[in-house]
Design a protein around this nucleic acid. Sequence first.
DNA 1: ACCTGAACACCGTTCAAGT
DNA 2: ACCTGAACACCGTTCAAGT
Lengths: 222, 222
Amino acid sequence: MSQSPAPRRTLGRPARISREQVIATARRIVDADGVDRLTMRRLATEIGTTPMALYHHVRNKDELLVALLDDYAERALRRPELPGDPRGRVLAAAAAIHEALAACPWITEVLTADDLMSTSALWFVEQILDGLIACGLTPDRAVHGYRAIWYFTAGEIIVRTTATRRRTDDDRPTYRERVFADVDPDELPRLAQAAGRWAALTAEDTYLDGLQALLDGLLAAH
Amino acid sequence: MSQSPAPRRTLGRPARISREQVIATARRIVDADGVDRLTMRRLATEIGTTPMALYHHVRNKDELLVALLDDYAERALRRPELPGDPRGRVLAAAAAIHEALAACPWITEVLTADDLMSTSALWFVEQILDGLIACGLTPDRAVHGYRAIWYFTAGEIIVRTTATRRRTDDDRPTYRERVFADVDPDELPRLAQAAGRWAALTAEDTYLDGLQALLDGLLAAH
DNA sequence: ACCTGAACACCGTTCAAGT
DNA sequence: ACCTGAACACCGTTCAAGT
């Protein structure tokens, strides 16, 4: 989606930088150094202007981030061949969203804004809704089902990416390691039993398993 | 959990502020104005010292936030009477965590650090693991099941709270409203059909429904 | 051991002025 | 219409010094 501003007039001073250029440069910074390092000031110097020149092409930093999300979704969300059966369609559409998000961890900062990430993602939402309805849910319950899938998907991405982010830039034992070290096997036997395998188990990608379980549960009652 | 530092010595200058006081004041700021408004500088002036005095009781701001989370979990997570049947136990433990988090939206900033929020929450994790195993899952699959429940729970909290946060401090039409306005009913019929009811549907609290569906799905294969 | 003051190296954004 | 410079009101944190 391009929510470009007013139609370009030929009057006045010719623009030296464009909104596209601003967004493209912001993307480069974020891809290289992470979203934390994207500041209006750095973006300006990287482009070769003053910070305030940016505000002519973008309302503020928040809008820049949303534009960045849109830009990414438009390029990363390629519509796949969907299977014919509705259950498979829901799974494939959700997995496609998940895959695009997983490849772009910085997105979590913006992601949580709301449930519809961008217009480019709407087609996927449509497939999920349609699949759920074809499986027998009412339209209203399909929306709730979609939301449940979205909670699960967003939660998986956010928890997973922020966990790995902290692990990398830290050499000391993680919070989790310190917590497990204090577990009393008499009081918390299951945790103590799992403590040694916890890191390996949580490193496994079980998104698809969880998604299937959730979907099965959503469809089971109907 | 109190990860208090070295044992208090009587030597040297007597402390004028304590770690407890720092955390308690930080909590007051966060409860009143949100986590964004918690800065080391404001915290210092609110206590009546200089910013740098804080760094003697807390390693840095990140550690302060984790301490804040611990502090909250210790006070908010009261262990409920759990039902005898294992499925009910899992539901009740997950719902208790969810309830505590929902009452404390600022926590999402810290929450996503990892999966075990604090030692106070471990008992609840234990109940979930134990319940899942009692329902027939292997210990490894129980960990995966717990993770799935955690993804869903964290995702619900994060999406819900950030969505309402943006709604309040903004009078213009939301991003979602703008997106729905552009939906083409021919291309995306299900979305167009749901557009009018979307806000009302997503305002409903369907966490427990989703949780039950997920749990049913997790248990179904075994 | 605990606290202070000054300073460093940053932020996002407004405002008034330039071309 | 588009861009600039200076300024405002902030940040987290380090460092050297005080008691």
